[in-house]
């Protein structure tokens, strides 16, 4: 059983389980699926700074922080207890494209040539950790949702704003991948 779980899971298994999170949260307590809200709850809990946007009863939303905490623990279990003994298989074309950008190591979930703590105080770290993370936090809140809140929860509930959001953040990712990343990697050379 454990050996079976250790293999990479098929997309259909992941898709069904992620999709079932929507009704599970609704049936457990009328909670709507959406993870970026947690970033706001953390601000409200830790650094509200008297801003209206962070003046609300975040404790009422603490279920979502427990959910996020669970994901953190699940990440630990998945990586350390159920880890795949084989390397991740990345598409050859993607590898070729990334080699052109200067990457050489395609092992692991994240490229070690970028996401290593040793790059924290370098331009690389500033762009990939600090700037990238900032865009995720600022953008999701400005858009009022992320992949979970808009693409999965919103589309499941047939929300037109969520469809627009999903198309737009996909477009943003495609633009950054094809035009932004080559510039960034060039800057880092």
């Amino acid at each position: 059983m454990i050996e079976f779980l250790k293999q990479p899971w098929h997309w259909s298994v992941a898709g069904v389980l992620i999709g079932l999170t929507v009704p599970t949260l609704l049936l457990l307590g009328n909670k709507t699926f959406g993870l970026s809200s947690n970033l706001r709850h953390i601000c409200a809990a830790v650094i509200p700074a008297n801003l209206d946007f962070f003046k609300y009863d975040w404790k009422k939303e603490s279920w979502n922080l427990f959910f996020a905490g669970g994901i953190l623990v699940g990440g630990f279990i998945g990586t350390h207890l159920l880890s795949n003994p084989n390397e991740i298989v990345v598409n050859e074309k993607t590898i070729a494209d990334l080699k052109e950008l200067g990457l050489t190591d395609f092992a692991g979930m994240l490229p070690s040539e970028i996401f290593d703590i040793k790059y924290l105080f370098s331009l690389k770290g500033l762009i990939f950790f600090v700037f990238g993370g900032f865009l995720v936090g600022f953008g999701t809140r400005y858009a009022n949702g992320c992949t979970s809140g808009h693409a999965i929860m919103g589309l499941s509930n047939l929300q037109v704003p969520s469809l627009i959001a999903t198309i737009t953040f996909m477009a943003g990712g495609i633009l950054m991948t094809h035009f932004g990343l080559p510039l960034i990697f060039n800057l880092l050379k």
């Binding site: 900032f134 953008g139 959001a165 943003g172 950054m176 932004g180």
Partner: peptide, 19 residues
């Protein structure tokens, strides 16, 4: 919805991660 999503998309491609 548009501006924020676009910025989030940029960040998603850089970090490789949504929240």
């Amino acid at each position: 919805t548009i501006i924020g999503s676009l910025l989030f998309g940029f960040g998603w491609a850089i970090t490789g991660a949504c929240p």
